[in-house]
Nucleic acid binder design. Structure first.
Length: 485
DNA sequence: AAAAAAC
């Protein structure tokens, strides 16, 4: 199967697939679709995250639904609310020409529209277990006409906290005429147990057995003490060519702390974790997806399944407790053939975890060199100069300032003009360059003196904009970056 | 032992 057009699909579904620009099926799609579009069967699909699982079950699910029957016919279970939203949205797009709609149902959201949707006989529901069980007990959620129940991220769904709710749903589901499709990255002991208990003669598809990770992800680790992590993180962000990234912490309170630290330092960040109210979680996700914020600090709530376009970096501020989670986290970047960095900050006593992850994933994690302050300085200047270049009205500005240019500036070299202008415009950046390094940053000793020496004998640099350097500012060494990240 | 997930 080379293209979707080879599949015997409903024409309006085909049209939606074309709208979405799906052309070549991914491996899991190529293997799962022929089975799931055939005679009804239970199913287990093992595939790494980010391999197009939603379409792999979404397409056959839509094929099995009768839109004229106003009953719930497809139910998808997800481990987080954000994932439920995302999957529901994608199914909506695929089902739009068929007249099939999907409703996300999860906690923290108002009951009104959920109850109404269920009452109207929405065809597909994508939700989180807790709220679904809630509707099940209250009677709003009826599983009698279900064609398929799908467990997305099944290994997580089967884990401790979810188990009861999951079993409540599995038990409430009539098994005549309906199937269970289970999707997971790994076949854990618990997944096997649930499969043995609830699935009947499931077809099994496993792709990329050896490769759990995207082939386009570049994995690095940085050795650092706990106390230096914040500095190292800032440097990594600063020297990145482009940064549209996720930063993972182990706990909610670490997320909160890191968020305020980075905000204090002038970075524009937002955060996502389970203690935030649902409204603000949704706002955060939207502004990250819209790239109004390019740094998202989060717990493992964001580690699974989230599909955000073109994430350049995933940074493990601390390594996850569960090694599985490492694979899920870094699966947020390097998606659909794009490059991406996965960087882990590792304190010496956690270094052994890197080898363990390498073994588990059969991949190499290189040791990265922590950028020096000089690297950071150079990159910032480069970014500023890039902004200089992008000034569109420059030609007119020159025209208007013609006389001034000639008389005042004609004798200076280009370098001096630009250098002085930079120093005037971004004094904090130059303060930072000259500052003695904080304790623990011995390796940066020789970072800046050369810059100063080389310039100090030059005409003009001794005076002017730079002569007030003795008034060292007490503000944090990082200048307001708005516009540079 | 953390995070997630109902009110």
């Amino acid at each position: 199967m080379k293209t979707f057009t080879e599949l015997p699909l409903d024409p309006s579904l085909m049209r939606a697939i074309a709208d979405l620009k799906y052309e070549t099926p991914t491996p899991i799609q190529a293997q799962a679709l022929p089975i799931l579009l055939g005679p009804p069967t239970d199913f287990i699909g093992l595939a790494a995250t980010g391999t197009g699982k939603t379409a792999a079950f979404g397409i056959p699910l839509l094929e099995r639904i009768d839109p004229s029957l106003r009953k719930l016919q497809g139910l998808v279970l997800c481990p987080t609310r954000e994932l439920a939203m995302q999957v529901s949205g994608q199914i909506n797009l695929m089902g739009k020409h068929m007249g099939i709609r999907s409703l996300p149902i999860y906690g923290g959201a108002e009951y009104g529209s959920q109850i109404r949707g269920l009452k109207e006989g929405i065809n597909v529901v994508v939700g989180t277990p807790g709220r679904l069980v809630d509707h099940l007990t209250k009677g709003g959620l009826k599983l009698g006409d279900l064609r398929a129940l799908i467990l997305d991220e099944a290994d997580e769904m089967i884990s401790m906290g979810f188990k009861e709710d999951l079993e409540a749903i599995l038990k409430a589901m009539p098994r005549a005429g309906s199937n269970i499709w289970l999707f997971s990255a790994t076949m854990s002991h618990d997944v096997r147990k649930v499969a043995d208990t609830y699935l009947r003669h499931p077809a099994l598809v496993q792709v990329n057995k050896k490769e759990m990770l995207s082939t386009t992800v570049d994995q690095l680790y940085y050795s650092t003490n706990e106390s230096n992590k914040l500095e190292v993180l800032c440097k990594l962000i600063d020297v990145a060519e482009d940064f549209y990234g996720l930063i993972f912490c182990q706990t909610k309170s670490m997320v909160t702390d890191l968020t305020s630290f980075l905000t204090e330092r002038g970075y524009k960040v937002d955060c996502l974790h389970g203690d935030k109210d649902q409204k603000s979680r949704e706002r955060t996700m939207q502004s990250y997806r819209d790239r109004r914020v390019s740094i998202l600090i989060c717990t493992d709530v964001a580690s699974r399944g989230l599909d955000v376009k073109d994430v350049t970096h995933v940074i493990n501020y601390s390594l996850p407790r569960e090694l599985d989670s490492y694979v899920h986290r870094i699966g947020r970047t390097a998606r659909s053939g794009k490059p991406g960095f996965a960087m882990s900050l590792v304190s010496p006593n956690h270094r052994y975890l890197i080898s363990r992850i390498e073994k588990m994933t059969k991949s190499r994690i290189r040791e990265g060199k922590i950028p020096t302050s000089k690297d950071v300085f150079k990159k910032k200047i480069k970014k500023i100069l890039a902004q200089f270049n992008s000034q569109k009205t420059f030609a007119r500005a020159i025209e208007m300032m013609e006389d001034t240019w000639k008389t005042e500036i004609a004798q200076m070299t280009k370098e001096e003009i630009i250098g002085r202008f930079l120093m005037m415009s971004f004094p904090a950046l130059f303060e930072e360059a000259k500052q003695t390094k904080p304790a623990g940053f011995g390796r940066d000793k020789e970072a800046f003196p050369r810059v100063q020496q080389r310039n100090s004998h030059r005409r003009g640099f001794r005076h002017g904009a730079h002569s007030n350097t003795h008034k060292r500012k007490k503000t944090p060494p990082y200048f307001d970056r708005s516009g540079f990240n």
